[in-house]
């Protein structure tokens, strides 16, 4: 690679491509809107936290982008094309509590589900899909547990299984719904290492996050959400008392942690 080439890459990273673009997104379960008129541009290659109080619509935002929920209005574009055409670029880590962990299956089997999307209808996973699943298990440090029944895993291990399942999809954009919720230190470190690796590979990661203290440490991009979008941008520019107060409605002092 020439010096010149290097320079070009550096330059292009300052005018990053937009990975996810949300326009006028409005979602309502009943009469009251859960999300109101959200416009959002997420540049490629950022680790973005979505923060906001309970009921702010953080999970709803992710689910609407992924087509799990049907919005009242709005459009979603992934790399400038409709989401339905770009599914292969997107991976999802749902909240751990959203499934029944007593389901009769093994850790390896759950992770293999990450290959089902590329397999399409009817075709069965083959040896190379199993291999990809094993590699993903290795990455999250769960290889020794591959044949464990999933109910026999701890909460943190279950979370890592979900993470591995998304890694198998080998996507460009990862959506994670509270991956840090209720996990032990081992798992938290494992997740952070994965996040860093994904960033190194120029993947975009969007995480619903609850722990405000760790936002500056783990993420470089942040979106404040409370039904409406309060602010979005680089953590170093916008993660401040002003935005926190606007989002949480109380006088929040982020400077406590310094």
């Amino acid at each position: 690679m020439t010096e010149n080439h290097h320079h070009q890459i550096k330059q292009s990273s300052s005018t990053k491509r937009i990975a996810v673009k949300v326009d006028d997104l409005t979602v309502a379960y009943n009469y009251k809107p859960v999300l109101w008129d959200i416009d959002l541009e997420i540049p490629e290659g950022v680790l973005m936290a979505i923060v906001g109080p309970n009921g702010a619509g953080k999970s709803t935002l992710i689910k609407s982008i992924l087509g799990i929920l049907k919005p009242l209005a709005g459009s979603i574009r992934i790399y400038n094309k409709p989401y339905s055409k770009q599914r292969a670029l997107v991976a999802y880590v749902p909240q751990k509590g959203s499934v029944d962990w007593d389901f009769p299956t093994t850790a390896l089997d759950v992770v293999t589900m990450g290959t089902y999307g590329s397999l399409g209808w009817i075709k069965r996973p083959r040896q190379r899909h199993k291999k990809a699943a094993l590699e993903a298990l290795e990455k999250v440090g769960m290889l020794p547990f591959k044949n464990r029944q999933i109910s026999q895993l701890s909460g943190g291990q279950q979370q890592r299984i979900f993470l591995a399942r998304a890694l198998v999809q080998n996507a460009s954009i990862y959506f994670m719904d509270e991956p840090f919720q209720g996990v032990d230190a081992t798992t938290e470190i494992a997740i952070i290492n994965i996040l860093k690796e994904l960033r190194k590979a120029n993947k975009t990661v969007i995480v619903v996050h609850h722990d405000l203290q760790t936002v500056p440490e783990y993420f470089d991009w942040v979106t404040f959400l409370n039904v409406k979008k309060i602010a979005t941008g680089p953590v170093k520019d916008i993660f401040n008392d002003d935005n926190l107060t606007k989002t949480y409605g109380i006088n929040y002092k982020v400077s406590v942690q310094e």
Binding site: K63, I68, R87, Y92, F103, T105, Y116, G117, I122, R124
Partner: peptide, 21 residues
């Protein structure tokens, strides 16, 4: 024929949706 799809739906229906099923 639909074993894989049935299993996926039973375990995690939302995830199945995001995979395009």
């Amino acid at each position: 024929i639909f074993w894989k799809e049935f299993k996926l739906l039973l375990f995690d229906v939302n995830y199945a949706k995001t995979l395009g099923f």
